[in-house]
């Protein structure tokens, strides 16, 4: 298993390098300019100077190599300096956002807490809802519960979050006034009052996202449990006189959760990546909102950095899913 992991990690390096190049070229080729938001009152000569100051007038390969150096060499030094109070970086040029002139990693650091809180909670709650629904739906296939669960999953999966989000805001925040419409990223939970506020501002976005996540995972769970229920070992267990609860929860469930765990692991990068649409609707200003904002103003360094981190997370969680699969299912052996 260890050699397998190492091998996978090593093959990930060229993959990621290739991904980073492709992203860089894609973003660079995309139409738009970092100066499109600058008022037209700024004359062309000044615009050219601004482009030069950002380094945006350099050839694309020069900028790519510089970004590679900053991402893999300079930024880790800053991280070490930050952790251990050392001074390896010595003020070297970090990856700076063109729009805000702030280091890209500082922006990501500011954005990560709210994304992890909201999207993470939603993912967790989504799993908690999905598993029982999926298991029971399979156990009582074609019952009214299964039909209702199927309907719920289809609705949750096919109604887009920008629709459910806006409907919820309209009803519960604007008309009824129960929840705030704008997420306060500065709220720190220190006592019950602030905890209550946090719950209130998280309620709507978490509901929307949890519904969406639950829909997907519950379908996987259902089909996996169904598949196992028809296996020989289930018949054997029942023949041995085991109760249905034992059969379902002890034997079937353990086997059926193997693919579900993989699906959950593969979905983890989205938790870090944030939910672009939902974050924008609820003004959460997380990673997803930062990415879409950066795309709007063609802030290449920030887009590149965020999308590349997504790529790293996806490769990483793919590996984790494979390893988990191997651990959970003794029949799978990689070596």
């Amino acid at each position: 298993m260890l050699t397998y992991t190492l091998r996978r990690l090593l093959t990930a390096i060229p993959t990621l390098l290739l991904i980073s190049l492709v992203i860089f070229l894609l973003v660079d080729l995309a139409p738009g300019s970092p100066l499109s938001e600058i008022p037209l009152t700024v004359p062309p000569e000044v615009r050219q100077k601004m482009m030069a100051a950002m380094g945006a007038d350099q050839p694309v390969m020069v900028r790519y190599v510089l970004w590679l150096k900053q991402f893999f060499w300079i930024e880790p030094q800053y991280l070490i300096d930050y952790w251990f109070g050392t001074d390896f970086a010595q003020g070297a040029q970090r990856i700076i956002s063109w729009q805000s002139k702030a280091p890209a990693f500082q922006i990501i650091g500011e954005r990560l807490p709210q994304t992890l809180t909201v999207v993470g909670t939603a993912y967790f709650i989504g799993i908690l809802i999905a598993l029982p629904i999926g298991i029971y739906s399979a156990f009582r296939q074609y019952s009214w519960f299964d039909q209702a669960g199927t309907f719920f999953a289809m609705a949750g999966f096919s109604v887009p979050t920008f629709f459910t989000g806006n409907v919820l805001i309209m009803i519960f925040a604007v008309k009824l006034g129960w929840f705030p419409t704008i997420y306060d990223t500065q709220l720190r939970v220190t006592d019950w009052a602030s905890f209550y506020k946090m719950i209130m501002q998280m309620a709507l976005p978490v509901t929307v996202l949890a519904l969406f996540n639950a829909a997907e995972i519950s379908r996987y769970t259902r089909s996996s449990v169904l598949e196992n229920l028809n296996q020989d070992y289930v018949r054997t267990a029942r023949a041995k006189g085991m109760g249905e609860a034992t059969v379902l929860l002890k034997h079937v469930l353990r086997n059926s959760l193997i693919p579900v765990v993989t699906v959950i692991a593969l979905g983890m990068p989205t938790v870090f990546g944030g939910a672009i649409v939902t974050e924008n609707i609820f003004k959460i200003n997380g990673i997803g909102a930062a990415l879409i904002g950066a795309i709007h103003v063609s802030d290449l360094p920030l887009i590149q950095t965020i999308t590349f981190i997504f790529a790293v997370l996806i490769v990483l969680f793919n590996l984790i899913a494979d390893i988990l699969y191997g651990i959970l299912d003794p029949r799978i052996r990689y070596d």
Partner: peptide, 8 residues
């Protein structure tokens, strides 16, 4: 607008 005003 990003293209129109982008001046590329």
């Amino acid at each position: 607008p990003g293209v129109f005003f982008g001046g590329d």
